[in-house]
Design a protein around this nucleic acid. Structure first.
Length: 837
RNA sequence: GCCGGCUUGGCGGAAUGGUAGACGCGACGCACUCAAAAUGCGUUGUCCGUGAGGGCGUGUGGGUUCGAGUCCCACAGCCGGCACCA
């Protein structure tokens, strides 16, 4: 194959290697996507691809994402928009640190080498980025503004430090984010079972924004994938109910519990507190020595249990009676207080009222420890003779019904009783309506080196002192000489010189040695792209007005919750601080599917893997990009075993040859061209913009294949290569193909006698006259079944149309001997004859 | 358990309530070739029929409609999210 290539004239045949080598330097020189060049009145679009983490070179997943994002950006350019399409790197993070530990050297070197490699690959991939706006989150010029953001939030009380229970990896000796804990409770990297550990850490008060984060999702309906909206709603997890105060015997202060079912208050027969809560410890302290001992053992057992073990609802219920009692605020009954690990310390108040008849978990617990079960809601639909008593069936009655054994609530339905119970509690001052969230505050401290230093110092009394804004950035010290190995505290603790500072009054202080979660970096980077080199402010207000918010965001569904939730949160914070005028960062979101192989996620270790480099070398950039988008609609997964990259290559070669064969001159009058081919071109010019709006690139490519085939037929058939319609069609193919195969498109454009770049050429609009056909094919149905068809003029009159339909052989055959009941006709499309007999 | 989504040929997929299967892959046949590759042309939902033509067909069952892949109801299967969250 390679041998033969030398034998043929290179210009006569499609050769992706030649095209790639030819056009890359031209584009580098032209820099066609430099947004600053366009100071005109065209409408603007901000098209953003989620920026990559620089772990090695680009892989198939990147190829899919950037093929898609680039098609979107190129689409809008061809539609006459100024398009901002920037790229940068999410370049802080643990993999760089691990690579440095493993192979020596510095996280910095590893990171920037990978960035250089990925940047080269992206340029080869012909992604239409504005290369003048590149940012790296690990640059001090960037993370300075993370620190600025942190200080602004600290001023507003939105950043705070507290002791809490966090995910701890005992092998790597570091905290882990929730997303780094696998479903089986092990660390995704070390494989160790993750445990909970109490540490003092920095948090961002995202729970203050829970309602807005939830309610503003409604604005995004139809613009974001429904799936993502649902996932965010689940994650925030708002539930309505009541806070109820229970007096505690031998304690001055009452204990609050949250319940979604205040209607079942009369059915409460005991209380449960989380073993790892402060309350449990305090209550246990008032119990007998033996019980205190049992409590301590139980607490230890709970703390040692993995996070996932604890969440396993199938586990038998365990617990310890604390020998203390609470008082039901409605009926004054005495409720024994237990502790059990099915109650979580950090949800609600870490304590519950247990209603075993109407809550499955409470019922399981009551049956295990032989506690009373009192029915207070009679189920609505009770079948005669069917046992429904939870004490017997073991199934709690969670549904609707009529209240019984509940004094003033008796006879009410569930919903009415909830309202009434809240009213009574409020009157007596022992409770109130309340809501609770699954969402927790965002823990941003990390015991890692390769991240943004937290701009706080501590005086000798451990008071927090924010670093003054003018002293930012707090630069990360050189990693050289620092021990990055996991040891349970941040590597920055060993940077003595860096860590030690002197306060204005001369007293000594130390820096916070943790770094920020890298999700902080990515929560606002889309704003930094507007003015990445501005060192006076995080983002330029004028650029902000021009471009923000992001019109179209494109990325994988794996970020459906964390990144997108954090970015939405920070945007709302910036809105409240007066820095931006919008409350949602991404007006529209598109999730691309994954590239899989034989139905399974690609995995190097399992040998189930396709190397992007191999595909590019064998088939070329254009064929790979086209294959990615032709395989299916963008949100679906692409199974590389089901696609044909060489098939895409064949199509591109056919398209390229069209331009090569055209013999008419540029600027020739298309209106004198062959009508039939012109109609095909017009139809596609008319259809493709609509398809582009809904990202149906697979269909657009199919249309371009049709147009290519039709043009080929015209050239080889009677029309001939010199016909203006052939040039019109070939130019249309070239312009549209630019969305998927920029090298082929650019070369075709040149072959057709035009200057680069085709990427900046606006699509012609279809001549409406060409969209009207001379004749259309009408179908004839008898009782809804297609029996014949006939050609008619599109403006045929209804009566004439019906008459012609009834005259067709198919109609005659099927009507014969039957009675015509009704004729439904829509000229010139179809006729349906309803017959009987 | 709760919530969301999906289900169309051998495969990926297409189809404003109006000819289901566009376009492509694969397969088969033909041309070119000593042969193969490449390229081109043709066939390709399924069953009956030599043919003309006809029956069946978009997970299953029902409904609305002159007409349903498309709208409504129920069910099944698959995928995803959340889950001892009170």
């Amino acid at each position: 194959m390679t041998v033969e290539r030398d034998d043929v004239q290179p210009e006569e045949t499609y050769d992706f290697r030649r095209l790639e080598a030819k056009w890359r330097p031209v584009w580098d020189e032209l820099d066609p996507f430099d947004t600053s060049k366009f100071e005109d009145d065209r409408p603007r679009k901000y098209v953003l691809d989620m920026f990559p983490y620089p772990s090695g070179d680009l892989h198939m997943g990147h190829a899919e994402q950037y093929a898609l994002g680039d098609a979107v950006a190129r689409y809008w350019r061809h539609r006459g928009f100024q398009v901002l399409h920037p790229i940068g790197w999410d370049s802080f993070g643990l993999p760089a640190e691990n690579a440095a530990i493993k192979r020596g050297g510095e996280p910095r070197e590893w990171t920037y080498e990978n960035i250089a490699q990925q940047r080269d690959s992206m340029r080869r991939y012909a992604a239409s980025f504005d290369w003048n706006r590149v940012l790296h989150t690990s640059d001090p010029e960037y993370y300075k503004w993370n620190q600025w953001l942190f200080l602004k939030m600290y001023e507003k009380g939105l950043a705070y430090r507290k002791e809490s229970s966090v995910n701890w990896d005992p092998v790597d000796q570091t905290v882990l984010a929730n997303e780094q804990v696998l479903a089986d409770g092990t660390s995704e990297r070390s494989g160790a079972v993750v445990v909970k550990k109490k540490l003092t850490q920095w948090f961002l008060r995202i729970t203050d924004y829970a309602d807005r984060l939830l309610e503003d999702l409604d604005q995004l309906e139809g613009k974001w994938p429904h799936k993502v909206l649902t996932m965010q709603r689940n994650w925030i997890g708002r539930s309505y109910g009541a806070d109820v105060e229970f007096a505690i015997e031998g304690r001055d202060e009452p204990v609050s519990v949250f319940t979604t079912r205040p209607d079942t208050l009369y059915g409460a027969t005991f209380m449960v507190v989380a073993p790892d809560s402060d309350l449990a410890e305090e209550l246990a302290a008032g119990a007998s020595e033996e019980t205190q001992q049992r409590f301590r053992e139980y607490l230890t057992h709970t703390q040692q249990m993995g996070a996932i073990d604890r969440q396993n609802a199938d586990r038998p219920k365990t617990g310890v009676f604390l020998e203390r009692y609470g008082i039901n605020p409605l009926d004054g009954s005495r409720l024994p207080i237990w502790t059990s690990d099915y109650v979580l310390a950090d949800y609600g108040h870490g304590a519950i009222m247990a209603v075993p008849a109407h809550d499955q978990r409470d019922l399981d617990f009551a049956r295990t420890f032989d506690l009373p079960i009192k029915i207070v809601v009679e189920p609505t639909e009770v079948e005669e003779g069917v046992e429904y008593d939870p004490a017997v069936t073991g199934v709690a009655l969670a549904g609707d019904g009529q209240l019984i054994n509940s004094e003033e609530l008796n006879g009410l339905t569930k919903d009415d009783a909830i309202a009434k119970a809240i009213e009574i509690l409020a009157e007596r001052g022992t409770g109130r309506a309340a809501k609770n969230y699954r969402l927790r505050d965002w823990l941003i401290s990390r015991q890692r080196y390769w991240g943004t230093p937290i701009p706080i110092v501590y005086d000798e009394a451990d008071n927090e002192i924010p670093v003054p804004e003018e002293q930012l950035p707090v630069r990360l010290p050189d990693g050289e000489g620092l021990d990055l190995k996991p040891k349970g505290s941040s590597p920055l603790g060993a940077a003595t010189e860096w860590k030690t500072v002197t306060l204005p009054d001369g007293s000594p202080a130390t820096r916070d040695t943790d770094t920020m979660d890298t999700f902080v970096d990515s929560s606002w980077y889309f704003l930094r792209f507007l003015s990445p080199n501005n060192d006076a402010e995080p983002f330029d207000q004028e650029e902000l007005k021009k471009w923000a918010p992001v019109d179209q965001y494109i990325g994988g569904v794996e970020h459906a919750i964390l990144h997108l939730l954090y970015a939405r949160f920070i945007t709302k914070v910036l809105y409240d601080l007066g820095y931006v005028s919008f409350t949602e960062p991404f007006s529209a979101l598109l999730n691309q599917g994954m590239v899989v192989l034989n139905g399974a996620k690609m995995s190097k270790s399992k040998g189930n893997f396709v190397k992007l480099g191999d595909e590019l070398n064998e088939h070329g950039v254009d064929a790979v990009r086209t294959t990615m988008l032709f395989a299916s609609p963008p949100e679906e997964d692409v199974d590389w075993a089901d696609v044909s990259v060489s098939g895409s290559g064949k199509f591109l070669a056919r398209a390229w040859r069209l331009a090569h064969d055209v013999t008419s001159e540029p600027g020739v009058d298309f209106t004198t061209g062959a009508l039939e081919l012109r109609r095909v071109t017009a139809r596609i010019l008319d259809e493709v913009p609509k398809l582009g709006e809904t990202f149906k690139y697979n269909v657009i490519i199919a249309r371009l294949m049709e147009l290519t085939n039709a043009t080929r037929k015209a050239i080889d058939g009677g029309v001939g290569a010199a016909d203006p319609a052939v040039r019109e069609a070939a130019e249309t193919v070239a312009i549209m193909l630019d969305m998927f195969a920029p090298y082929v498109a650019e070369d075709m454009w040149q072959q057709l006698g035009h200057e680069p770049s085709v990427a900046l050429v606006e699509w012609p609009t279809a001549d409406p006259a060409l969209l009207v056909e001379d004749s259309v094919t009408a179908i004839v149905q008898i009782n809804g079944k297609v029996r014949d068809s006939f050609d008619v003029a599109p403006d045929i009159d209804e009566e004439e149309f019906k008459k012609l339909a009834l005259e067709t052989a198919g109609a005659q055959r099927n009507i014969e001997g039957k009675q015509v009941v009704k004729i439904i006709a829509k000229a010139p499309k179809f006729v349906n004859v309803v017959v009987k007999g």
